[in-house]
Amino acid sequence: MRIYATCVYLFLYTPIAIIALFSFSAGRHASQFQGFSIKWYGKALSNPFVMDALETSLMVAVASAFLASVFGTMAAVALQGIKGLVRTVFDSLIYVAVMIPGIVIGIATLIGLVTVFDQLNPLVSTLWPTGFTPPKLHMGMGTLIAAHTVFLMALVVIIVRAKLVGMDRALTEASSDLYATPMRTFQQVTLPIIFPAILAGFLLSFTFSFDDFIIAFFVAGSETTLPIYIFSSIRRGVTPEINAIGTMVLGVSLLMLITAQLLLQTGGKKNK
């Protein structure tokens, strides 16, 4: 899992690493290095469109990573108690969910949600008291968070499950032997032990969501996330400013990733 993730990230970031170099160029051209400068960073950070997109991206990433961590952990813990065929089916479905290309998830979510909204919106407006404007379900921040959460949940389940499986069954038994109810056993033993894995799952989810372009492109509606902003700017030509934004995204992602790896590693050692 770790090797797989590392490879994926390497593959994703190698081209961006080159871009990172050019983001420190003083010149106006994105593909020529003309002296060291950080002026493009200042420019990017004072661009209101960039800051808007950044805010959207952060909100989506935090919200979906949080929801995915909570629901993913719940699912992983529940799966522990299940055996046999049901479990095998669930396990394979979860792995499949992680492997499905983003574009498939994006299109499927878009079509699914639009269909549902088209059915629901007239229904809601007929039920709504006259004189008030009925709420209209539409693609936007909500749908983006929902789509990301569902996808990232699978990731969290896999990470937390790995930790739960590695956890000695005798620990929860010892806790229950020492008069702790199942609920208290979960709070006092299971949760603290798997917490590093949950946190790692949160950080990885954050990174995935923050970097995601494809799913967001389909389901974000009128919202602009940072990757969407970059994409639309590139169509007007690659500037060093774009390079600077890209580099900052890369920096944040790498930081999260490394933290997640550290959490998974040290947490693993101490519980052996």
């Binding site: 000695d168 005798a170 620990l171 038994e173 010892a174 806790s175 032990i193 101490k270 519980n271």
Partner: peptide, 9 residues
Amino acid sequence: FQQYALFPH
């Protein structure tokens, strides 16, 4: 317990 099952945290 055989492997003691002490709480590591």
